[in-house]
Design a protein around this nucleic acid. Structure first.
Lengths: 203, 203
DNA sequence: GAAATGCGTTAACGCTCATTAACAAAGGTG
DNA sequence: CACCTTTGTTAATGAGCGTTAACGCATTTC
């Protein structure tokens, strides 16, 4: 992977701050002046970099969905041929990394989708659907007894579990990133196993 | 339980429709005229029943949190003395019922909290905290090896899992309410078991 | 060195939208 | 019947906010 050492461009600064603010107070709850102030320029100055407020949200949401899907495809290709369980583990790991590193984006992802123009929304939904289907296929390889509708529900539910990171308190009240990632991973596996039919008795 | 047979009061109609609309398009995305139209009156007519738009949201959110907490306390009292696993099952069942029956409220619950006046927000957060702590205590009874921070994270994550119902598609694409409830219940148990230290191997 | 371009600024416009004012009709109550 | 309360209505108000206009100033480019 190529690590960038150059300074972030102004566009990137804006997107990052906009994501944070949108996640904190919602798309409608944030004014362009605020976004501008967060990067040290005035509200209307943003229009040199984006067509409008909507455009920022669109770029963020399309970017998120695309990034998730691309990462998943890569992991699938890398681990192909290996045991299906390992592929599922890899998918889980990737999603957790994203959820822990980009909490604001995770929040936006299922909160502000409706605010998009039709075409953008369709694109995002399509990317999301592909991402889900990819998980469903891997999951059903691991648990062949699982019917497709149940598998899809299970995948959505595990996304809910993994995307709970924004509710986990600020990073500091957490037992450390590694421990949190491991806990989430174990829980996701446990949830899938239970959905797949394995007994999960108490005690 | 007393089942009401009388017609819903106008206040209740308004709250129900407001909840649905807020969940669909967000607090700021819905106008008072729309809420009014949904119950057959005009926008300003709402002010005969509520002090303002904010008041509707506040009453909804406080109501949700209170309802969840009250229900959990009742279940705890009913099942007290029995095995801790059964109490946990009862809590899960209650939360699932709520998540499946009142999807819009579940959505609002963690989406629009910041829009509240300080006092209301504090109240809601306090109710939420009590609800979480109640789960944490029961969970640690079932899995004594689980440290408190991990238990709290696990509870939040399972809430994420159970609250994923709004993403599960309209009731119709689902394999039926009962089956969905059972699936969610099994997954929640499996996730807790995995968090608690039980092995959850693949295959 | 002049012109174009990139990146800001502040002021003004226009629209949306919550809220309030002013008024009306129905129904109970003395 | 007269009166008050309840529950509406439509019109007006006023604030907030996204967007555009008009302008300034480095920096690059020919």
């Amino acid at each position: 992977m190529a690590t960038r050492t150059d300074a972030p461009t102004r566009r990137e600064q804006i997107l990052k701050e906009a994501a944070r603010l949108f996640a904190e107070r919602g798309f409608h709850g944030v004014g362009v002046d605020e976004i501008g102030a967060a990067v040290g320029i005035s509200g209307p100055g943003l229009y040199r970099h984006f067509a409008g407020k909507d455009a920022m949200l669109a770029e963020l949401l399309v970017g998120i969905s695309g990034q998730l899907l691309t990462g998943a495809k890569r992991r699938l290709a890398e681990a192909d041929g290996g045991p299906a369980g390992a592929v599922l583990d890899s998918l889980i790991e990737g999603h957790i990394d994203f959820a822990l590193d980009d909490r604001p984006l995770i929040t936006l992802h299922d909160r502000e989708l409706d605010r998009l123009r039709d075409s953008d929304r369709k694109l995002v939904r399509q990317l999301q659907r592909q991402y889900v289907e990819l998980w469903v296929e891997v999951l059903r390889e691991v648990y062949p007894a699982l019917a497709e509708p149940a598998a899809r529900s299970a995948v959505h539910s595990v996304f809910g579990l993994l995307n709970s990171t924004p509710h986990l308190g600020r990073p500091g009240s957490l037992p450390g990133r590694t421990a949190t990632a491991e806990l989430l991973h174990r829980m996701a596996r446990g949830a899938f196993a239970a959905a797949g039919g394995d007994a999960a008795p108490y005690g």
